[in-house]
Design a protein around this nucleic acid. Structure first.
Length: 394
DNA sequence: AATCGACCTGTCAAC
DNA sequence: ATTGCCAGGTCGATT
């Protein structure tokens, strides 16, 4: 049976392209909650599905290394209970014609460059933002290499419908189950099955809501099925991708017509998959950041994020950072996650003492993958103390 | 335009 | 071991 590869045990299996860690940090970028499908399968090695293939990625100081697994079951011997397979699923066949390793590798490198949007220079952006924004500079000095992925629009949309009123840790499990239940199987590595993200037609099936409720999706089960059905019924299968070619606000409003898609989810999809770098998703984190770190006072102690406040905060950051404001937001958002608080304490220090934690989490259970229990306790204590200390000296 | 409550359920931190 | 709040929101009804 195939297993996950690691760089140290066979450089033959790997290709690479130039990429500085100042431009890309896999550990931050793949685990900050923009994509939910990457797992650290060995120390510093991230395995996930992208472009219908299974990849393992890792990096050294100046290169990004990748391995693509071959699809074991090209011909599915398993009964595929989707009897109605509309003709619009061209994804099944490729690499049948003679493609040299060289060509294959070139194509894969190009897929990676696109996925990580390596043409966008984070160093330049951060220097620019940091010059005018003290707080950003302090944060970005530690959180260097957080960048926006260019995700598949369908995957992005349906993943983010799952995020409402929810935790990242739980969302990851849900998206995993979604793919397992409705996506085409790709391969299996060390007992872990990998599936493609479900197609629109798979998501739109009337049986899906009940199925997903059984899988613990709660009220989001209906949103997923209904949104997929609405897209296919009223727009067609190419509609979401087509939104890449329309202006930001138009794409945003189009998305908001879907059930389960409000301002925040629409902005996430715009920013993370539709080439709208000016989209600034405002969630509770960003709201807190605006108030706490930017003394954003235009909300007179409001209880909830109203439409107007949402827009004002987005405009505030767009004015501060310009057309790539969404990229800036993602850096601060990442820095605000508690799973990454330990990075702040050690500043630039390269590799922390590795708690031996990385080994046990690679098994196959999804719950070992939290990565934040290592220091949360002290961190929480510290945080609480800070906010309390101001009002009561202990 | 702002506020309120309901909505599913797993996680995490506090009894 | 158990409990209770809450999490990267959205929707519909009210004021």
């Amino acid at each position: 049976m195939a297993s996950h590869v690691v760089l140290t045990s066979g450089a033959k299996l790997w290709r690479s392209l130039p990429c500085l860690t100042s431009e890309l940090r896999l550990d931050l970028t793949l685990a900050c909650g923009q994509s939910f499908r990457w797992r650290e399968t060995a120390e510093g090695h991230w395995t996930g599905v992208m472009g219908g293939r299974v990849w393992t990625l890792t990096q050294t100081d100046d290169r990004l290394w990748y391995h693509v697994y071959t699809n074991q079951k090209k011909r599915r011997g398993r009964e595929n209970r989707a009897e109605e397979q509309p003709e619009g699923v061209p994804n099944v066949e490729e690499e049948a014609p003679a493609v040299t390793d060289e060509q294959q590798s070139t194509m894969e490198a190009e897929m990676l460059r696109e996925y990580f949007q390596l043409h966008v220079k984070m160093e330049d952006l951060c220097r620019h933002w940091g010059a005018a924004d003290r707080h950003f500079k302090n944060t970005a000095d530690v959180f260097t290499g957080v960048r926006m992925l260019r995700q598949d629009p369908t995957e992005c949309l349906f993943s983010f419908i799952c995020t409402s009123n929810n935790h990242i840790s739980r969302i990851q499990g849900m998206v995993e189950r979604l793919c397992q239940a409705l996506g085409v199987p790709l391969c299996q590595l060390d007992q872990t099955p990998y599936h493609d993200f479900p197609t629109l037609s798979a998501l739109a099936d009337s049986s899906v809501e009940a199925r997903l409720r059984d899988l613990g999706f709660g009220y989001r089960a209906r949103y997923l099925q209904q949104s997929a059905k609405m897209i296919l019924d009223t727009h067609g299968s190419q509609w979401i991708e087509g939104l890449r070619r329309v202006p930001y606000l138009e794409a945003r409003e189009a998305l908001r017509t879907l059930p389960g898609v409000g301002a925040k989810v629409a902005d996430c999809v715009c920013l993370m998959s539709l080439d709208k770098p000016e989209a600034v998703p405002v969630d509770t984190h960003v709201w807190q950041i605006a108030k706490r770190d930017y003394k954003y006072a235009a909300d007179n102690g409001q209880k909830s994020l109203t439409d107007k406040l949402y827009k004002d905060i987005g405009d505030f950051f767009r004015k501060l950072w310009g057309p790539y404001a969404g990229w800036g937001q993602s850096v601060l958002f990442c820095a605000d996650l508690k799973k990454f608080q330990n990075l702040k304490e050690m500043g630039h220090v390269k590799q922390p003492k590795k708690e031996k934690e990385t080994h046990k989490r690679c098994k196959k259970t999804k719950k070992d993958f939290d990565g934040n229990k290592i220091k949360t306790e002290s961190e929480y204590r510290k945080k609480a103390k800070i906010s309390v200390k101001k009002e009561s000296t202990l």
